[in-house]
Each structure stands twice: as structure tokens, then as C-alpha cells.
Design a protein around this nucleic acid. Structure first.
Length: 589
RNA sequence: GCGCCGGUAGCUCAGUUGGAUAGAGUGUCUGGCUACGAACCAGAAGGUCGGGGGUUCGAAUCCCUUCCGGCGCACCA
């Protein structure tokens, strides 16, 4: 009888409104109160103020020009021609203001929300919106040459939250980390390590440190560890032999460290993808061959170039423009090198091969990359490269994440990976509760720069919004316990008279619960999981308001049970939202 | 010079495909625990939506222009 699987109360109401109004217009045209014209585009929306209805439409205003009539007259004609609302989700329709049609939910709609949120339990919020399409979400992908920083903390919360939202919205999601274990930065890593190793035996002044080397303390620690295991046997040997040996020793340790830190941050990946495998398997060579065969490359100055300018233009790439000393502006193409004159492929070549692997080898419908804003110059040419190789650049979506500014004592703390003075993710997670970090880093949409207030994050009190949300859940659990102590238990939603839930704060709470599935879909569609975090704040706020105006304990049985059903619906929704974000859901605090 | 992302209350930020009186938190001020947890709630004050044009029934939202802040324009990744 009750099947609420995938039920999305908000969307259902909007769909029904559209169908009703469309039918109303058709009926009005059939009975002559509206002229026979093509149905205009119109909007169905939720008004800011529910005095203006639960659902509103501008159909009468949108049709003013087509029908050649005043909006209010059109509205009258449509309302008169509507079918009976008896079995609909609505109890009445009003005409208001310049011609808005405002629809008000019936008791049945409110009851349906409470039923769905109770009966669906830990699946409430899930929909089949994404129809099982395969989506790859790649995020963090920090260089294994050093510790992670605060940007990675934000990228982690963002990517993991996005993956969760997509999962709940009905996509088949793979979480992925690309290990950049090849290329120049690894060579630099090796040189830095080897130098530190030699300095241990010869003294710091005897062996100059590379100017562009990694300065961090972590390099010294890794070199010392290598020295502890192998002694001085590499000191007088070939530098490259030492370099390779020490990379081979240190890199797995760093990768293990990345995995541990991310696991502590509650991020577990489905795939850890090694860039080296692209070099070794011939995947890069294959991509170079395909691009060459399609005429997308040429040779110049001993290097292989890709015609980036030509392919990336449709994705918004621009040419280089320079202003000379004489004030004359010149423009030039910005083609990219794929294979250097020394025969080594660039990272760009590897990246094309990597995305080719995602789409062709592994068959993802969509690939989403979460990148720092400093990589935005790479976006257009990466998408263009997908077209160039015969795929579709539109299927590659890049989420650009703006920077994090760390605040401590109200002052910004500057970070720099090179000098090694940054606050690392490891340090952060030692100081800040994980719940707090995950919540705060996922509170802002990706496109805005965010401040991370360290003083606030470590606060375990009500200033910290995560506790406000968790407290709402603890309060619900507390009511259940208090009632159980009096011998009262929740008998289940099916026996409740949900039409008793008529207080404004009850209705408002139900409306918010109803939004949950739509909120997840919006987060998935807009690649903005921060919506979920903000939603938990709204829901907690409304629950606290309900709590202060509507008592559960001490009311007569039927109302008490109906309110228990509402509490349980809220509890399920809060728990599902927080669990999605991998934030804990305490029963008491 | 070219491009990307921002600019909304003192501060931090929401604002859905253009909709009705632009919202919330925080801070300031005033109230509410002898009924389920006061880590809460209610109320007050606080706005030229950076500026200027335009599009239309209607603009924080779309277009043009301009100012300010962050970032990017490598045979680096």
C-alpha cells in the first residue's frame, strides 16, 4: 500500500502543479475562456513566503502576451477550468498579486512526507535521478612528495561530499585519487632526498641543496630513515643510483601517509590510480599515436606539440597576448608540448592518457575533477584534448575550488609548501575534531574563497555550527528516552493520525524534511555539496523551533504519537544527511 | 595586456531556470528554564545587493561598461 521508495515530495508537488495548470489551460481553451494558442513557458516554484502558497506559478503572467489578456483574467480562466483538487496534493488555489497562482498543500501531502521519512528510514533522501550513470570523481590527488595542506582538506571535504551527493542522487560513483608518482616533481623529490642523505654524512655545507628542492623537514626525516636502514653505502656511489634507491624507499612511505591521513579524515577511495602505470603500459604512447593520426600534433624544435589553440577555443581558452615596448599588442598561439625535446612526455600528455583511460578503458559516462583554482588555465585545454582525441570534452567536468585562508587569532596565516612552514593536514587533524573539520570545510560553495578559523574549529561549544546540528539530533534521542522512562514508546507511523500536525512550526518542519531529496539532487547537479551542510543547519534550526513550541511529552496520546512520528522523520533526515557527509550523529552530547 | 573566480547587514555567508516585503549565523540590545537537554528559543536594531547604463510587467539574478580583491597565462605539475 505504501511505497515511498525514491519519493521526492517537493518534486512530486511541482510536477503535479505543472500537470494541473497545463490541464487547466487546455480546458480553458476548450471551453472558450482562453483563446487557442500555444502554451507559454512558465515557472513553478516555491515562494519565499508561504503566505503566498506552498507552490506558485507565473503561468498567467507569462501568458499575458500570447493570450492578449490581462494576467488576472487569464488566472481566473485557468482556475475556473481546473479539475477537482479532491485527490490531489493540494487543498486550494488562490490568485494573488499581479496574477500569481498560489497552491496550498493538503493534509495528505504533509502526511505523505512524514510517512516517507519514517518508512524509508536510512534510505530517505535517495532518488533514482542519476539513473545509475557511471561517474568518476577524482579529488585531492595531492603530490606524494610531501604532506598535505589545508587546500587538500577542503578538496577532500568537497570531493567526498560531492561523491556522496551523486551516490544518493542515484549515480554509480567511483571515488578516485591520482598518484603523481612520475615526472619532474618526483625527480626533484629524489634530488632533495639524496642531498639530505649526503648531508647527513658530509655535513650541510659540503653538499649544496638544490635551489628548487623541497625544503621541508619531512624530507630530512625520510633521508634519515633511509640512512638508518642502509647506512653510508650510497655515499660514494653514483648519485643517480642513490636517487632512485631513495625514491623507491621514500615514495611508498609518503603514499601510505596520504592514505592514513585521508582515512583519518574519513575518506576512503575506490581507486588509487598510479600515473606511472600510464607510462609503463604504453597508454601515453597510444594517446600520442591517436592524436598524431588525427592530425592534432606536430613537431617543432625537437618536441612534439599539440594544437591546443585550435581545440580548446570552444571551452574559452584565449591566446597569449603581449604588449611590446613600443605598445604594440601581439597575439600568439598557446599550443602545448606533449613530448619534450629530451624525449620525456609532459604531465599534460599523461593527463590526456589518464582521462582517456577513464572514458575509454573504464567506461565512465562522466568524469569530474576537483582542482585548485590555480589550475584553471588547464581546464579548457584538457577538455579540448578530449575532443581532439575523439571523445567528448563536455563529459569532463572540472570543479574549481578557490583557496582557503587560514585564520588564527583573527590574523591570516600564510602557507607555502616550498618552505615547509604550512600547517599540514596531519597537524590540523590532530588539533581539530574531524566532525568539525568536515563540516566547516564543506560549508562554502567551491567558487568562493573561504576562511578557515582555527580558533572556531577547535571550539567544542555552540559557536561551532556542527554542534548545533548534532544537538538537534541528541535532543530527539533525549525525548525518546524520557518517554520510554514513562513507559511510552513510538508505535510506528502507520497508526498515527498525522493530520494532527497542524502547528506552524510542525508544518514548517515537514516542508523542510520534504526538501531533502531535492536538496541532494541540487547538490549533485550543481556540484555543490555544501548545500547539504547548510541544509542540516536549516533543519536543525527548524527542529529547535518546533521543540520550543510543541511538546511531545505530556500531550494526549494521539498527538504525542503524531509528534513522535515527526521527531522520527526529523531524526532519520538529520542522520542521513550527516552520515552522507561522514559526520557523526551522537545520541547524547 | 588577456583570461578565470569573487564583491549582498559591522563581520562570515545564503539567495534555485529572472518573481511578491533581499534572508541566516555572528556581533550589539531586550526578553524566556518548578513540562521533553538554555549547547535552545522569541523580539529589536542593522542594506544605495561595489558604481553606472541597458533588456521587461518585474533584475541581487541576464547584457554592456567601470572600480576593487584573489588567481592563472612554462619543453612545471
Amino acid at each position: 500500500m505504501y511505497d515511498f521508495k525514491n519519493y521526492n515530495p517537493k518534486q512530486a508537488a511541482m510536477d503535479e502543479t505543472r500537470a494541473l495548470l497545463t490541464l487547466g489551460v487546455k480546458n480553458a481553451m476548450a471551453n472558450g475562456t482562453l483563446p487557442e494558442k500555444e502554451l507559454p513557458d512558465f515557472v513553478v516554484e516555491i515562494p519565499n513566503d508561504n503566505k503566498n502558497g506552498d507552490i506558485a506559478s507565473n503561468i498567467a503572467m507569462a501568458g499575458a502576451r500570447v493570450f492578449g489578456m490581462a494576467p488576472r483574467k487569464i488566472a481566473d480562466a485557468i482556475v475556473a477550468a481546473l479539475p477537482s483538487l479532491q485527490d490531489s496534493m493540494f487543498e486550494k488555489v488562490e490568485i494573488a498579486g499581479p496574477g500569481f497562482l498560489n497552491l496550498f498543500f493538503s493534509d495528505a501531502w504533509f502526511a505523505g512526507v512524514v510517512l516517507a521519512a519514517n518508512l524509508n528510514g536510512d534510505a530517505y533522501g535517495r532518488t533514482d535521478f542519476g539513473a545509475g550513470k557511471k561517474v568518476n570523481v577524482e579529488f585531492v590527488s595531492a603530490n606524494p612528495t610531501g604532506p598535505m595542506h589545508l587546500g587538500n582538506a577542503r578538496g577532500g571535504a568537497l570531493g567526498d561530499g560531492l561523491a556522496a551527493a551523486l551516490d544518493w542522487a542515484g549515480y554509480d560513483v567511483t571515488r578516485e585519487f591520482l598518484i603523481n608518482d612520475a615526472g619532474n616533481q618526483i625527480v626533484k623529490f629524489g634530488k632533495s632526498l639524496a642531498t639530505r642523505y649526503l648531508q647527513i654524512y658530509k655535513g650541510e655545507d659540503a653538499v649544496p641543496f638544490p635551489e628548487d628542492g623541497y625544503q621541508g623537514e619531512d624530507i630530512k626525516v625520510l633521508a634519515q630513515s633511509f640512512a638508518d636502514d642502509h647506512g653510508d653505502k650510497f655515499v660514494n656511489g653514483d648519485f643517480e643510483v642513490l636517487q632512485n634507491a631513495i625514491i623507491h624507499d621514500a615514495l611508498p612511505k609518503n603514499i601510505e601517509g596520504l592514505k592514513n591521513d585521508l582515512a583519518k579524515y574519513r575518506i576512503t577511495y575506490d581507486v588509487w590510480f598510479s600515473e606511472t602505470t600510464l607510462h609503463e603500459s604504453g597508454a601515453i604512447q597510444n594517446v600520442l599515436d591517436v592524436l598524431a593520426a588525427r592530425g592534432a600534433t606536430y613537431e617543432k624544435d625537437g618536441a612534439v606539440w599539440y594544437r591546443s589553440t585550435q581545440y580548446s577555443e570552444k571551452y574559452g581558452a584565449n591566446k597569449n597576448t603581449r604588449k611590446g615596448l613600443d605598445g604594440e599588442v601581439t597575439t600568439e598561439d598557446k599550443d602545448e608540448v606533449l613530448v619534450r625535446a629530451n624525449g620525456i612526455p609532459t604531465y599534460f600528455a599523461a593527463d590526456i592518457a589518464y582521462h582517456y583511460n577513464k572514458f575509454v578503458t573504464r567506461g565512465f559516462d562522466t568524469a569530474i575533477d576537483v582542482w585548485g583554482a590555480d589550475h584553471h588555465g588547464h581546464v579548457a585545454r584538457m577538455k579540448g584534448a578530449m575532443d581532439a582525441i575523439g571523445l567528448d570534452g563536455e563529459k569532463l567536468d572540472i570543479v574549481l575550488m578557490q583557496f582557503v585562508r587560514l585564520l588564527q587569532g583573527g590574523e591570516p596565516v600564510r602557507m607555502s609548501k616550498r618552505t615547509g612552514k604550512a600547517i599540514t593536514l596531519t597537524t590540523l587533524l590532530d588539533e581539530v575534531p574531524i566532525d568539525s573539520a568536515r563540516f566547516l570545510f564543506n560549508l562554502r560553495e567551491p567558487g568562493s574563497t573561504m576562511d578557515f578559523d582555527l580558533d572556531l574549529a577547535v571550539k567544542e561549544d555552540s559557536d561551532n555550527p556542527v554542534y548545533y546540528v548534532q544537538y538537534a539530533h541528541a535532543r530527539i534521542c533525549s525525548i525518546l528516552k524520557a518517554l520510554a522512562a514513562d513507559g511510552i514508546t513510538f508505535a510506528g507511523v502507520l497508526g498515527c493520525d498525522l493530520s494532527l500536525l497542524t502547528e506552524p512550526n510542525e508544518r514548517e518542519l515537514i516542508r523542510l524534511i520534504a526538501n531533502f531529496p531535492s536538496e541532494i539532487i541540487a547538490a549533485a547537479k550543481n556540484y555543490d555539496p555544501a548545500r547539504i551542510t547548510r541544509y542540516t543547519l536549516e533543519l536543525a534550526t527548524q527542529y529547535h523551533k518546533f521543540y520550543n513550541t510543541c511538546h511531545v511529552k505530556g500531550t494526549e496520546t494521539a498527538l504525542c504519537q503524531a509528534r513522535l512520528a515527526l521527531c522520527n522523520a526529523t531524526k532519520n533526515t538529520l542522520r542521513n544527511a550527516l552520515t552522507m557527509l561522514k559526520i557523526s550523529v551522537p545520541e547524547s552530547m
